[in-house]
């Protein structure tokens, strides 16, 4: 692998747009270029319950995009259905203008940390090397070259000192970084990340944000399921508000509005408040709950959502 190729995956590039809110920079939209991801009319169900209803959007290239919505809104289901990990009930997905199955080599995926057994007999470097398996093809074992790439990716998330560490002996934030490094090793152009910020400490969160910005500066597109409303304007260029059906999608500055958030979270929260305390609902304090959710800058929005 040449050094220019390595630069392409962004490991040696310096974070260029650090500290700049997405609202301050204009969204890069290239007219005419095929969208990186084209989702139309995507639906999914669990038993008889609709989990996704007719979701359509087009993701532009080179942006950090947040998927935001209340619990059970189908955020994880959306990216799993796009990736074909979940059966869809209808609709179509095209990435780089082609069906997803044909371009898997250009798509990276970071599952939720809880989705695997961290007691598995393996070490950090080995997990990162799994990011290379798709490119190796059948039967071939990873060799020196794959090891070097994986090590580079570990360095990219600041975990090179833990390469030989058994994965159960890593902290939650470190495990998350390992998963990100594994996705880096995939050398993809489009990334899906399922709650990478869940349960990590401030230092790891900062490292992840730097990594996301580095990927963006390389022209990669990253779609992130995100929970913390307070940080959305800071971290993301575009936001997709989801509650079973698509509520709003567009540049964060225009889309992340009180009105849209109220629509996404509102009904559910009023219902939750009424169910939890009927007397409060009668006295009218339940009406205050949706308003809290509609203040994305306040830290209480995160708690109210739960």
């Amino acid at each position: 692998m040449s050094s220019s190729e390595r630069n392409e995956i962004g490991l040696e590039a310096s974070p260029s747009e650090q500290g700049q809110g997405a609202g301050a920079r204009p969204a890069r939209r290239q007219e005419g270029a095929p969208p990186v991801l084209e989702v139309s009319g995507l639906s999914s169900a669990y038993r008889s319950q609709a989990v996704l209803r007719e979701v359509s959007f087009e993701a532009p290239q080179g942006e950090l995009i947040a998927i935001v919505g209340p619990n059970g809104a189908g955020k994880s289901t959306l990216i799993k259905t796009i990736l074909g990990l979940n059966p869809s009930l209808g609709g179509s997905v095209r990435a780089f203008g082609r069906p997803v199955a044909e371009v898997r080599g250009r798509i990276g995926y970071v599952p939720q940390r809880e989705s695997v057994d961290w007691d598995f007999p393996t070490h950090a470097l080995d997990v990162v090397m799994m990011g290379r398996y798709g490119r190796l093809g059948w039967f071939r074992r990873p060799g020196r070259k794959e090891k070097a790439i994986a090590m580079e990716c570990l360095r990219g998330v600041g975990m090179e000192a833990f390469a030989e560490r058994q994965i159960s002996q890593l902290s939650g934030g470190q495990q998350q970084r390992i998963f990100l490094a594994r996705a880096l090793a995939q050398e993809a152009d489009l990334y899906f990340m399922d709650e990478p910020f869940a349960g990590v400490d401030a230092a790891t969160e900062k490292a992840i944000v730097e990594l996301l910005r580095r990927l963006r500066s390389e022209g990669k597109t990253v779609i992130v399921v995100h929970h913390d409303l307070a940080t959305v304007p800071d971290y993301f260029d575009s936001v997709l508000l989801l509650n079973v059906s698509l509520q709003a999608f567009g540049p964060t500055a225009e889309t992340f509005t009180q009105e849209n958030l109220q629509r996404t979270y509102g009904g559910r929260m009023a219902f939750a408040a009424a169910a939890a305390s009927p007397s409060a609902a009668e006295s009218g304090s339940a009406a205050a709950a949706p308003l809290r959710a509609a203040e994305p800058a306040s830290a209480s929005a995160k708690g109210a959502e739960a």
Partner: peptide, 10 residues
């Protein structure tokens, strides 16, 4: 270890 990732990787 991670069947979902395996599927995503093709």
């Amino acid at each position: 270890f991670d069947p979902a990732f395996a599927k995503g990787a093709g």
